[in-house]
Design a protein around this nucleic acid. Structure first.
Lengths: 337, 337
DNA sequence: TTATTTCTTGCATACGAATGCAAATACTTC
DNA sequence: GAAGTATTTGCATTCGTATGCAAGAAATAA
């Protein structure tokens, strides 16, 4: 197996210049004459030379690798975000190293340690939290950490989320305006700031209208648990006439239970409102009214924060909240019946 | 910003040994005495030392990074596969560097070049092809390439797919047994071997029963195009009574058109069979009969090939086809009406 | 105890590219 | 053409770790 390694030295030899010259040709902004540049490029492409990013990283201290920790790829909001993120970073010359955080155990710290081993330029935690201890490690290692779709009470961490509190309020306002009287909520995982904020906003708005939650169950952002929650909620004596579900993903499960297991009509008997606006929400089979998380804008913000941090170490952490609209579709009544 | 870099040298100093000793402690299988080992480990954890993978790679020639090229994260088969892949590799001490191949332009070669820059130990192309020229580059760089869910006529590339031909046959056999008389097909992108094999198997089986395709449209594995295809196919004079769609993803779009735009009943008036068995297929709203691609077994095979190639350069490329069952649900009639 | 073998250890070097510095070359200007 | 400035270039070193080699320590055999 002719495992050839073409190094800058060989290119230099062929081009009749020094290794430094070759390096400079491939270093944007370095001082090289037109002639040398051409000679080197010709030799390089002849040999199929490409700079070794790893070797370069060793010196520059920049790996052009961004570590991404994800745990919920089965929630279709994340594949979309991943795709946007990866594409955008790719355009900027960075690439994404993926780390799965198992949903069960809270071993995020171990995972982040592994990430640091790769000398990543930055870490994105998608819907995942980290220990304060580890945040210290990252900070002192000079690796900026950005929480995506999650916040945390640690002022060293930047975060980008949708405005979950406002989103919760929007959902409530909409259901109230629709004349619903028995309004319920199916919660996500209580450890998630997104869940807490959505609930808080929702409950707050209800309260401001003198309404209190008619029913409450926890789905933990897991479809099966959402199903259970729905079964429990909608087999009671007098069932809710509206339910706000903390994620689209759970909403689909809830709708399926309501329609196919319990034979109820949506939205005639029960209105359902979700959160995320993943692609499936717009499919006619669900046609889900939901609060949109503008993935593209969230990603854009994330990336701008990352690049800023990488270029200028002194940037202080920011917390971005992006407002998302309520997307009105057919899963919830609009006027009072 | 106290950007401290803890190196093996500092650990060595603290532990009162040489840098080599530290290195050996962190190199599995190296010769170190129990005493030294302890001293070093104590010092290391005190300083929070962790070996720099990049520097290590420079010497060993192994980065423990696997490059993954994806292009269809919106088809929910891929997030699932990505999750399985990443998890399994993580357990083996490898990690996945993600590269998005834009669906539109065929710039795969550029992408793979970028991957090679990172000195990856192997490349997985998920549902993506590469030029023969580039395959040469990879081979000569000693980087094994594995096609996932795609084959290609290049005997230097390994591939792992489901048995698409057999899957197509199963779909046909099932529809025939269900007494369908006007059987149609909505194809994926013709450049994909998966598409071609599924179609070939399907048509072959029909032919063996003396049946020919009643209608044919192309959906290119894109939901919108599948919708168009369905509209065209099901507004004809005498519509098909069954359609095999080349992917679940397209199937959902097709079912939505059939039900909600055209007001037809599934499976009473039209039977639909898909391919993939993504999670959504089992949701009651679709309840799609489909040929399963066993993602977990496909991933397991992929990984075993990768590890084998990395350890033993002389392994020759393999082509694995994994048989998947037809999962019978409610979207297709079983008995002749 | 001494000779022999097996483990450990440190030294020095290598991996591939980037960069400060000083020497060399090219370009201006008078 | 000389003097001065701006631009290129090569040399040597550096990044953090792994590893062949030879010397030293420990264990075993005689």
């Amino acid at each position: 197996m002719a495992t050839k390694k073409i190094t800058s030295l060989e290119v230099a030899k062929l081009a009749g210049v020094s290794q430094s010259a070759v390096s400079r040709v491939f270093t944007p902004g370095a001082s090289v004459s037109k002639k040398t540049n051409e000679k080197v490029r010709r030799a390089a492409s002849k040999l199929g030379y490409r700079p070794n990013i790893l070797a370069r990283s060793l010196i520059t201290g920049k790996s052009r690798i961004i570590g991404l920790v994800v745990s919920h790829l089965d929630n279709y909001f994340y594949p979309e975000a991943l795709e946007l993120l990866s594409n955008a970073l790719q355009k900027k010359g960075y690439h994404v190293l993926v780390f799965m955080a198992s949903k069960t155990s809270g071993n995020i710290d171990d995972v982040v340690d592994e990430i640091l081993d790769y000398q990543v330029d930055s870490i994105i935690l998608a819907s995942v939290a980290m220990s304060s201890n580890l945040a210290t490690r990252c900070t002192s290692a000079g690796v900026p950490v950005i929480l995506f779709n999650r916040t945390q009470d640690d002022n060293r961490l930047s975060s980008v989320t949708s405005d979950n509190f406002a989103g919760g309020k929007k959902a409530a306002r909409f259901l109230i305006a629709g004349g619903h009287k028995r309004i319920a909520y199916i919660a996500g995982w209580e450890g998630a700031s997104t869940q807490r904020d959505r609930e808080a906003g929702f409950v707050k708005e209800l309260k401001e209208h003198g309404i209190s939650l008619y029913a409450y169950e926890v789905g933990n952002f897991v479809r099966d648990e959402a199903r259970q929650a729905a079964r429990k909620m909608f087999t009671a004596d007098e069932i809710p006439d509206a339910v706000f579900v903390a994620s689209d993903d759970m909403s689909f499960a809830v709708m399926d239970v309501i329609r196919f297991e319990l034979g109820l009509k949506i939205p005639e008997q029960v209105s359902v409102v979700g959160y995320d606006d993943v692609p499936v929400a717009s499919w006619p089979a669900y046609d889900l009214t939901t609060v949109r998380q503008p993935a593209n804008r969230m990603v854009a913000e994330t990336i701008s924060i990352i690049l800023e941090c990488i270029e200028d170490k002194e940037t202080k952490p920011r917390r971005i909240q992006i407002d998302g609209p309520l997307v009105i579709r057919g899963s919830a009544r609009i006027s009072n019946k």
